[in-house]
Write a protein that binds this DNA or RNA. Structure first.
Length: 274
DNA sequence: ACAGGATCCTGGGGGC
DNA sequence: TGCCCCCAGGATCCTG
């Protein structure tokens, strides 16, 4: 589910509820997440005061002094702080009881998400380095971005989904960014001129910024760190609007399969010409 | 190098 | 009501 704007919203919601708190108990369900939770981590986590919470791409990083927690929401992950009195919902897989009678809960219906312990920031950085996680969209250097496009024969859609090129864009915001930039999703990176490359970079920044302002998109499962749904789903211009009229030209929005994902675009506004 | 498919999971919706 | 098929905000591995 969650792309950069959703993860950013979770982090902003959790920050005031989590910083300064410590874990007094950790409860884990029997069902395994994408990376299995190890009970041996718990001794290192209990009693540690939370110093900060950050986002990197679609990852959530919790700074507990020396140890860190790394969280990925996968497709259906929810990461919320609620009163311990609130009954736990089904599919709640990890619960961190806080020292203020609240609980930090990780719930994930499809279990594609993960909650992982790292003993230090250095180990965490090594993990990202090994994955080759790309730059944040807001810090993306125009020349570096242009270079990434010039050097590949892949489609724009595939490039946007590649977390090593730019971190945090997923299926929804890839489609919305391509519409904003008026570029066809099947266009090959190599064929863009510098002006178009820059248009696309700016479109990504603009779309993600707007989505953060709207607290992300809640289509089905997504909620922010305090349980509230987002509002950006009401402003999609192509995603999920197959057959509906384009907001710019009234042409019917088309849907194709590309890079293994459903892809939505306006065949008139997003021409294949370069 | 890159596209496409399968995989990990569960649940919702549509068609019959 | 039930069953079957398709679909889903992600990441990763394998094949051709």
């Amino acid at each position: 589910m969650p792309e950069l704007p959703e993860v950013e919203t979770v982090v902003r919601d959790l920050r005031p509820l989590l910083v300064g708190r410590s874990f007094i108990e950790i409860t884990v369900s029997k069902k395994a997440l994408r990376r299995k939770w190890s009970r041996s981590w718990e001794v290192h986590l209990l009693g540690q005061r939370t110093r900060a919470i950050h986002r990197r791409g679609k990852w959530i990083l919790i700074d507990l002094g020396e140890p860190w927690l790394l969280v990925h929401l996968g497709m259906t992950g929810q990461f919320t702080v609620v009163s311990a009195k609130v009954p736990r919902e089904t599919h709640t897989h990890v619960v961190f009881s806080l020292d203020d009678a609240n609980e930090l809960r990780f719930r994930d219906v499809r279990r594609f998400g993960s909650v992982t312990y790292y003993p230090s920031r250095v180990k965490l950085d090594a993990h990202f380095l090994q994955k080759g996680l790309g730059p944040e969209p807001f810090d993306l250097d125009p020349d570096c971005w242009g270079e990434s496009l010039r050097n590949t024969r892949r489609s724009l859609k595939a490039i946007l989904l590649d977390q090593t090129v730019v971190a945090g864009v997923g299926n929804i915001y890839a489609d919305e960014s391509l519409f904003e930039a008026r570029l066809h999703p099947t266009l090959v990176g190599q064929t863009l001129n510098p002006k178009q490359a820059e248009q696309l970079r700016l479109a990504i920044v603009s779309v993600l910024t707007r989505a953060i302002e709207k607290r992300g998109s809640s289509i089905r499962d997504y909620v922010g760190g305090s349980g509230l749904r987002g509002q950006m789903q009401d402003e999609f211009r192509v995603y999920g609007r197959t057959g509906e009229p384009c907001v710019r030209c009234r042409t019917e929005i088309e849907r194709i399969a590309l890079a293994g994902r459903s892809t939505h675009f306006c065949p008139k506004c997003q021409r294949k010409r370069v």
